[in-house]
Each structure stands twice: as structure tokens, then as C-alpha cells.
Amino acid sequence: MRDKWSVPGYVYGWLLLMPAAVLLVAFTHYPAAATLFDSFFTTGTVVRPRHFAGLANYAALAQDPIFWKVLGNNAVFALGTIPTSIALALLMAVWVNDRLPARALVRMSYFTPTILPMIAVANLWLFFYSPQIGLLDKLTGLFGASSHNWLGDPDTVMACLAVMTVWKEAGFFMIFYLAALQSLPPELEEAAKVEGASRWYFFWRVTFPLLMPTTLFVLVNATINSFKLVDHLFILTKGGPDNASNLLLYYIYQVAFSFFDTAYAATLTVVLLALLAALALVQFLLIERRVHYR
């Protein structure tokens, strides 16, 4: 064997890792730390350079009704989209896992929204929700309802966004269920058939419990995702009306790039990071279990 390999492994290890590590530190770890640091300072201006502010930004945050509104909206958005998406995803997966005519077409139809950018989706759905000319208004008009500004009404805007998001996401989650269903041993189903178990009974007593790890995995990922999903707001509502559809990441964008209050944006980002970290912890514990399950 030649000498090339005689350099100790750790040198090679670090050398190989170095390019990726530099970028990861520069764009993930450093900015996360800098954000935390910034949240203890004021936003500097030309006339007033930034100075240490202690917890003042956090005090302002606690007093900021928009922050609480936005946080509540994130909860509503998550609760309004995730359970429905997951239930539909499971249904879709069970259906296309069995034999049915035109299965490939059905599967394709379910999955197609997944590969569209959220911006394109918003462009298309904007039209459905437009008052008067929109499809939704035409549909409700058939039943004699008067025209309604679906996205302009605080009572309906979140529901509209939720429906669109479910449409976009369900097919993506279906993929995970499909993979899980295909890894279930077929003997289970044969045994159930011999026992004369009904399809319904088999699903709830056998399939659903066995899919639990997948459900947990999808659940955590969907929750993480729901904090990052804000693209549609740029097209559909800009967070309005009166912040009725505003979400945390969009609010951060507004505070930083419309109001130029970077210190407060940093403070809001810290909250988002804390939420994501908490979810990461949950996921870590779940993945640990998944290993045992496997």
C-alpha cells in the first residue's frame, strides 16, 4: 500500500468537511448566533447608533398585539391545514396503494400540486377567491348568496388560505404513507382475509397503528413546514386584512424590510428559532423511537 493513506484519518476528515463546514457556519450557525446577539440591541440609525438594550426588545414583543395575533394565526394555520392534509394524504395513499383503474393518473393528480411553487399556486387560487369574477363567488352565487370578498374578510381569509394549502400539501404527505404502506408485510392482509376481517376493521386495527411512526414523522415535519410557508401571503393578502392572515415569518420580513427595524426583526426571529428548536427536539425523540421500531 502506498503512503497516501498514512496521514492520520482526522486530517482527511476535517479537510473533506471543511468546504461545507465553512458555508454552514457562515449561513446557519453564525446568523443564528448573531440574531440572538442583535435582539439585545436597538436598531441603529444614522443619528443614533445602536446601543445595548437589554431585554427591551423582548418587553416590546410581549406588548406587541400584532406579534400575539401573528402567533395565534400560525397556530390556526397549523391546526387548519395539518390534520386535514394528513387525513387526506392517508386516504389518498390507501387508495392508490390498491388496484384501481387509471391508478397512475389518479396518483399523478394527487401529487401534481406538490411540484408547483407556492407563488404559482397563489396566482392560480387568487382568481378563485376574487369577488364577483372568482369561481368561488360564482359557485355560491348559484345558491343565491351575494358576492363576498373572501380574502378581504378577516373571518374567511384564513379558511381560504387553509384550503389552498391542504391542496398543495396533501399529495406530498401521501408519498410518505405510500412508502410505509408498501413496506408492510403482505401476510398481514392475507391473515386478515382468512379471518374474515372487514376492510374498515383491518384499516383501523392493523394498518393505522402500524403507520403511527409515519404519522408522527409527517406531523412534526408538517408543523415545521407550516412556519416556513409564507410565500402565498405575498400574492394573496400581504398579511391582511388588518393582520388577519399574517404569519410569523412574513411579519419578520415586514419588520425587517418594510419597517427597517432589524433589531425587532431579530427578536422575532429568536422566537421563531426557539419554536423550530422545540420541534426539532420533539422530532429527535421521535426518530429515536423510530429506530427502535425498525
Binding site: F27, Y30, A32, K228, Y253, F257
Partner: peptide, 19 residues
């Protein structure tokens, strides 16, 4: 490294813009 799975660069727009 795995931290980046949770904290994608778009979450840190303010600081990354500065960089």
C-alpha cells in the same frame, strides 16, 4: 450539520442579507 435541517437559510433572512 443537522441543525440546518430545522433552520433553513430563509428563516435567517435578516442576518444572511447582512452577510
Amino acid at each position: 450539520v443537522l441543525v440546518q435541517l430545522m433552520i433553513m437559510p430563509e428563516v435567517l433572512i435578516v442576518e444572511n442579507y447582512r452577510t
